[in-house]
Amino acid sequence: MLNGIPINYYIMLSAVLFIIGAVGVMARRNAIIIFMCIELMLNAVNLMLVAFSTLHNDANGQVFVFFIMAVAAAEVAVGLAILSMVYRNFKSIDIDLLSRLKN
């Protein structure tokens, strides 16, 4: 059981998950899916924090992850309220329709 896993593998895994989330944000137009991709990016960072916290045997990293989860929950509640408001006004959640501030 003492065969450890190099920290580099965890960094690679988090990087790959983060980039999948970033590509999703860039490539999709559905606002809800963009939101879910942001959640995936947050989780990738969480995984890296927990890995480093275990590596250094320091609880601060895991407390940080706990706070990130609390902030993510707050963010999702407000974000989904905004999205449902947008859907009520536009009858669509296509991100490309929401460029009115540009003009």
């Binding site: 059981m1 003492l2 065969n3 450890g4 896993i5 190099p6 920290i7 580099n8 965890y10 960094i11 690679m12 990087a15 980039i19 927990v50 890995a51 916290s53 275990t54 590596l55 045997n57 320091d58 609880a59 895991q62």
Partner: peptide
């Protein structure tokens, strides 16, 4: 870029299996 930046990093092993009690 990320993989390239990690290539020369030193390999640290996470010791698993009951060694770390902080979680």
């Amino acid at each position: 870029v990320m993989i390239g930046a990690l290539r020369g990093a030193e390999q640290l092993q996470i010791v698993q299996g009951g060694a770390s009690q902080i979680g």
